[in-house]
Design a protein around this nucleic acid. Structure first.
Lengths: 232, 232
DNA sequence: TAAATGTTAATTGTTGACAAAATTGAACGT
DNA sequence: ACGTTCAATTTTGTCAACAATTAACATTTA
């Protein structure tokens, strides 16, 4: 592969950074699946860079949770177990709840004059996307909704970690399970969050956000269970 | 420096892992302070390993938040600002609250038969350490208390992240501020958490845990403020 | 003097080679 | 067949050298 032009995205001032992004893409897009081994030599020749550079990229990815490192044996795409998914949902719920509470406080302080309007707009678009059954748009709006709140919380560290969690959860979304289950219910939960945040009610926002993630997990579990019963 | 024998701590199967631990120690113990530059060559000759190995160690530390990486300029010990400390406290509170709620649920399920007793014992020891003004012991017991709860939550990922946060917060604890302020109050908050978790009351445990971290932050801020007013 | 420019030194980025460890698989015996 | 031993091969860990970038300093010029 030749390093493409679009690679000039963000953390890519250096070659290793570019390679890192490429490997991450391979994992997220399913080129590499859970359990796969990352062969340093193979990757380096495939990408036309040196082994050391690939090695550096892999090391940098390891802490993100997408990759497991075993000394003298190599790097493997992390295999997320069902119990880990539960843990990830718990963590994500905790972060998101905290972020929504913080966002609500900032709204109350007048620090986020645009937020209420933006959330409301997103909610409306989501409803029409649902009506027209536009999954693609719905999916993006859903991401945007959570991003807006995370950004409004004014806690960049929280956002970074949240994004990591979401990325890692995608690793488990292999079996083609559609994420979108019970959309109507999910949208209503978004409405609750929007109202609480917009009115500056921190505790209500926190509770609504936590509930949203928790029931999201429940919806997901239901899907998994009916697909492969008795794996829990 | 020659790599000491005690280096056989945890992530030390490989040389780079050992170097990483050594650099981390330097940062935590104050050998390297915020803003300091990490010179690859200097470190490598000092430790008697190759530059590449030091480089790998530094890269691995970067994601932990202790170190900032700037392309073509090098690695610097992260300078934690006051607003970042607030963010870290918020995050830590969210994780700890979630963990305590999870621990309470596990107690309710009978999955943690030892926990209530262990927490109670810790509480008692803490009280006597406070009476005899044994700061060293108190400090360790405080760490143990939080560790027990994080472990009981059954969420290793949460514990890892929590530990990272605590480590990063230590970076800000330069100016010799004693961490132990209003110990009596802190112990009473521990009692609240202990009671909620022991009785399996998840929501109460969550609230008590969150309050504990929040008021810990308030106590800390009071100290900082009276030391250098007008920095917030 | 101060700003701009050119030159040199120091430091990071990248690479290829060598050493050590792990995996593979064939030969061997039971 | 089955497991064990051990050499051959592959793969990772470490190192030292080279290239590219940045920082420091002297020199020129307005």
């Amino acid at each position: 592969m030749t390093l493409t032009a679009r690679s000039i995205g963000q953390g890519r001032a250096t070659l290793a950074g570019e390679v890192r992004g490429e490997i991450e893409r391979m994992i997220v897009e399913g080129d590499l699946v859970a359990g796969d081994k990352l062969n340093e030599l193979a990757l380096s020749t495939a990408m036309g860079v040196s082994r050391g550079t690939v090695r550096e990229a892999i090391r940098s990815l390891a802490d993100s949770g997408l990759i497991d490192l075993i000394a003298n044996r190599g790097a493997f795409v992390h295999e997320t177990t069902l119990s880990e998914v539960r843990n990830l949902y718990d963590l994500r719920g905790a972060i998101f709840a905290m972020a929504c509470a913080a966002a609500a406080r900032r709204v109350a302080e007048g620090a986020e004059p645009e937020l209420a309007h933006a959330l409301q707009a997103n909610l409306q678009q989501m409803r029409s996307a649902h009506e027209t059954d536009d999954k693609q748009t719905y999916y993006q709006l859903n991401i945007d909704f959570h991003d807006m709140l995370l950004n409004a919380a004014g806690n960049p560290r929280a956002k970074t970690f949240y994004d990591k969690l979401v990325k890692e959860m995608h690793l488990f979304r292999r079996r083609g399970l559609s994420i979108a289950t019970n959309i109507a219910r999910s949208i209503d939960e978004h409405r609750e969050i929007t109202e609480a945040v917009s009115s500056g009610a921190a505790e209500a926002a926190r509770a609504a956000a936590e509930k949203h993630i928790t029931s999201g997990f429940a919806r997901y579990m239901k899907l998994v269970d009916q697909e492969e019963p008795g794996t829990a």
